[in-house]
């Protein structure tokens, strides 16, 4: 995933914090003791994931005039190319906190790839992607590591 321009905005941070159910005022109220202690408004650690909003090619966002694979008149519209992958692992390494006013650029690099036997006798194909987020002055802010897995068998319907 490469994102040319991910402007980090205070309102987006507030909405993201609400969505993860985190009421910490450091995420929305610059006058709060929490924000002052944090050196101003700061983003929750997993906020870099919201760069998906700024990915032109994000296949998981409906776009006007383009087919969508979710339901409308029918239960399913289109088939999503390359679907079926699951998120196996995620990490973020912070070189500095993410703050409003930053304009981030992300570049992805391929990492390792490996396979593992699944408990149900199929095989699991893992791929690792490393993503660097830099600010407008080129400083590294976050390095993210994503491991995706494509199971050979249909996902279990049990929790």
């Amino acid at each position: 995933m490469a994102v040319q321009k991910f402007p980090v905005e205070a309102t987006h941070i507030m909405m993201f914090a609400r969505a993860i159910g985190d009421p910490n005022p450091a995420y929305f109220d610059p006058e709060s003791a929490e924000a002052k202690a944090a050196g101003g408004i700061v983003a929750p650690p997993t906020f870099p994931w919201a760069s998906m909003q700024f990915d032109e090619d994000n296949p998981l966002r409906p776009k006007p005039g383009k087919p969508w694979f979710g339901s409308g008149r029918e239960p399913s519209g289109e088939t999503l190319e390359g679907g079926g992958g699951l998120h196996a692992e995620q990490s973020f390494e912070f070189h500095q906190p993410v703050r409003p006013g930053m304009v981030l650029t992300s570049t992805g690099r391929e990492g390792a790839a490996w396979t593992k036997e699944s408990k149900r006798g199929g095989s699991l194909a893992f791929t690792e992607t490393l993503t660097d987020y830099r600010d407008q002055s080129g400083q590294l802010v976050v390095t993210a590591r994503t491991v995706g897995v494509i199971p050979e068998v249909t996902p279990s319907k049990e929790a």
Binding site: D22, N24, V42, P44, T46, Q90, E93
Partner: peptide, 28 residues
């Protein structure tokens, strides 16, 4: 999965401050 990862992070950021997280990683 990222909703669960985000919600889980709340305990760490409440305890240590969100500006002090140097690394955060999980397995789903």
């Amino acid at each position: 999965g990222m909703l669960t990862m985000g919600a889980t992070g709340r305990l760490v950021t409440d305890w240590f401050g969100p500006e002090n997280v140097a690394y955060y990683g999980v397995r789903f």
